[in-house]
């Protein structure tokens, strides 16, 4: 507990005096399956972005339109909701045609 603050250093009242401090907290370590993004199959419908409970879908605005960039694995917990709501990733489509493919973490080195 060496890096924890002492009582004199903390804001009083249990208040967290800055917003968004949880962004420092890595939830990606929970993940056992990983969504892998295949941009070539993506239609940028933004469903994955809308539904990601962890805001781990990164997007950017290009020519005034939102575009999928990929996943932020620092936060992604691997729930798979993105792939489930993706119109280009349903079970009937072969894997190579899907925009999001769920793969076990064991397949990755990092």
């Amino acid at each position: 507990m060496a890096d924890l603050k002492g009582w004199k250093e903390l804001a009083i009242g249990g208040v967290i005096d800055k917003p968004s401090t949880a962004k420092e907290y890595q939830t990606g370590t929970w993940r056992v399956i990983r969504p892998v993004y295949k941009p070539e199959n993506c239609i940028n419908c933004m469903f994955c972005w809308l539904y990601c409970p962890d805001q781990a879908v990164e997007i950017e605005v290009v020519d005034g339109k939102p575009k999928m960039k990929g996943f932020n694995y620092y936060y992604c917990k691997g729930c798979g909701l993105c792939a489930n709501v993706c119109p280009k990733s349903n079970d009937k489509l072969p894997e190579e045609k899907r925009a999001i493919v769920m793969k076990p973490e064991t397949e990755f080195q990092d």
Binding site: L4, W7, L10, I12, I16, D17, P19
Partner: peptide, 23 residues
């Protein structure tokens, strides 16, 4: 300057907050 009131304060900080009240 958004602040958070009433967080979940577990064994790593609750004691320090009580010490502040004592002070």
């Amino acid at each position: 300057n958004p602040v958070t009131y009433g967080p979940l304060d577990l064994y790593d900080y609750y004691f320090e907050h009580k010490r502040q009240q004592i002070e």
